[in-house]
Structure formats: C-alpha cells, structure tokens
C-alpha cells in the first residue's frame, strides 16, 4: 500500500507533529513499507479468531475492577510537579482561543 503525501500531512496534523517539508517524502516511503507489511498480514485468514486487544486476554478474560472507594495518596504539588508552567494550583498553557 502506498501512503500518499496527502495522508502523511493529515497524520501529521492529527498527531500534532511539525514535520519539515523535506521529511514528508521520506515518511511517505517509510510508512508505505510498513503498510505493505500490514497488507501482507491481512492475507492471513482470521475467521473465528477473537480480536486480541491485549496479550493478557489469553490468561484473564475480564478487566479487574475496584470498589468505589476514594483513595488518593498524591498531592496537588505531585500532580503539578512536571508542569512547565503553573500558578495558584492551575496548570498554565498557552491561551486557547474559544
């Protein structure tokens, strides 16, 4: 499968990446190879095979659940510890124009 230039730009936009113009062609070639490989995988007959979401599904058939109990050990400062910018316990981000 060929991943077109147009699709690369769309993926770039969706992933919020900033791809230099010079790289678009290169990624088109590289991703086309990946998708060709996927096309090859698609040839396998998977009728009757349950879709695998997580390799654990072969061992555990359902997601574990917890009781509805409030349990929080971290603090506001923990939460904000990696924030590049913060003020009055808020994360600060560039102004989002509504």
């Amino acid at each position: 499968m060929i991943v077109t230039r147009h699709e690369i730009i769309r993926a770039e936009k969706l992933a919020r990446l900033n791809l230099p113009e010079s790289k678009v062609e290169e990624f088109s070639t590289r991703l086309s190879k990946v998708f060709s490989w996927i096309d090859q995988l698609k040839e396998v007959d998977v009728t009757g095979v349950r879709p695998l979401v997580n390799p654990l599904m072969d061992f555990v058939d359902r997601t574990p659940m917890r009781k509805d109990v409030v349990h929080q050990t971290n603090t506001v400062s923990d939460v904000l510890s990696n924030a590049p910018d913060k003020d009055h316990d808020f994360f600060l981000v560039p102004k989002v124009v509504e």
Binding site: N74, V76, D78, V79, L80, D89, F90, F91
Partner: peptide, 8 residues
C-alpha cells in the same frame, strides 16, 4: 481548589 482531586 484546582487540581485537588486528581491522581497521577
């Protein structure tokens, strides 16, 4: 207050 009921 903000970010008070937030876990990691």
């Amino acid at each position: 207050s903000p970010n008070a009921t937030v876990t990691l």
